[in-house]
């Protein structure tokens, strides 16, 4: 329409729209954290995974605090003189400035908030950290803000780096499932609803979503010890801090295996990285 002469009523209508400010509705909505220039925004997030792109670039999958899971291109990141340096490796929590794209955003600047360096420098810690990232990657949707999961993930990575407990990853899985609405029922039999205080739970059934008493189990589910049920109960009811101090035991091993099975059951896919735990 540019350069075309408009009829007087049409010109008047456009002028009135401009004066009233109504034309702002047509402008693209600025995302949360938008800064000055259109399309640019800031946020902070944890790098979940990286994929090589072309000669020297990478596509990053990042769980951000305010914009949910995003995928962004970091140009030239694989070059030794890249301005991004080692900031954009999985497990890093970084402050970001990005340019909004149609499918992939473009990373323009980043600064480290927490590098979680200890996780990258211990093979055992890394193999426990990556399954958390993979689970979050599969569980979250693109551009759907999930600040609770972001906070939980940063907390879990920090705890794993500081406390170095093998229980961090299973505890994260259980809490993540609980946050998504899959909290297991362990205070009563998931089938007959007899309270666990009256009739102790005997096994855990993923289909039923909780523990079963001996009568309801009938050989089904995974048999769990009383100690394992107790540990699971403490993880889900605010007793994780004390549980992390305990030495590895058969109960913690059972809870770890069950957490992975529960996560894979609800994701309906295997976690590739769990094979290296």
């Amino acid at each position: 329409m540019c350069g075309v002469l408009l009829a007087a009523p049409e010109r008047r209508k456009r002028f009135e729209v401009r004066r009233s400010g109504a034309s702002r509705v047509d402008r693209p909505i600025q995302p949360v954290g938008a800064i000055g220039m259109p399309g640019l925004y800031r946020d902070q997030g944890v790098v979940l995974r990286t994929v090589k792109l072309g000669e020297a670039d990478r596509i990053l999958t990042i769980l951000t605090q305010n914009h949910g899971k995003i995928r962004a291109v970091a140009k030239g990141v694989r070059k030794t003189h890249s301005k991004f340096g080692a900031r954009l490796e999985p497990t890093s929590n970084v402050a970001l400035q990005l340019y909004l794209g149609r499918d992939l955003d473009v990373l323009t600047q980043c600064e480290t908030i927490e590098s979680n360096r200890a996780l990258r420098e211990g093979y055992g810690l890394l193999t426990h950290a990556i399954p958390m990232l993979e689970a979050v990657d599969h569980l979250t949707q693109d551009r759907e803000p999930v600040p609770a999961i972001y906070r939980m993930l940063t907390g879990a990575l920090r705890t794993l780096a500081n406390r170095r407990s093998a229980l961090v990853t299973p505890a994260f899985f259980w809490k993540l499932l609980a946050l998504e609405g899959y909290e297991p029922r362990i205070n009563a039999c998931a089938r007959c609803e007899t309270p666990a205080a009256e009739l102790p739970l005997f096994s855990f059934d993923l289909q039923e979503g909780g523990g079963l008493c001996r009568g309801c189990a009938m050989g089904g589910g995974r048999q769990l010890s009383v100690e394992a049920f107790d540990l699971l109960s403490r993880i889900l009811s605010g007793g994780l801090n004390d549980a992390l101090d305990e030495a590895p035991s058969p109960a913690s091993h059972d809870v770890e295996k069950l957490a992975l099975a529960a996560m894979e059951h609800h994701l309906e896919r295997r976690l590739k990285s769990a094979s290296l735990i």
């Binding site: 030794t80 003189h81 301005k83 991004f84 340096g85 900031r87 480290t112 590098s115």
Partner: peptide, 16 residues
């Protein structure tokens, strides 16, 4: 640090 680079542009992990 890469030879020829400036210290102020180094990221925390590399500089550490």
């Amino acid at each position: 640090l890469p030879v020829g680079g400036d210290l102020e542009y180094a990221d925390e992990v590399t500089l550490g």
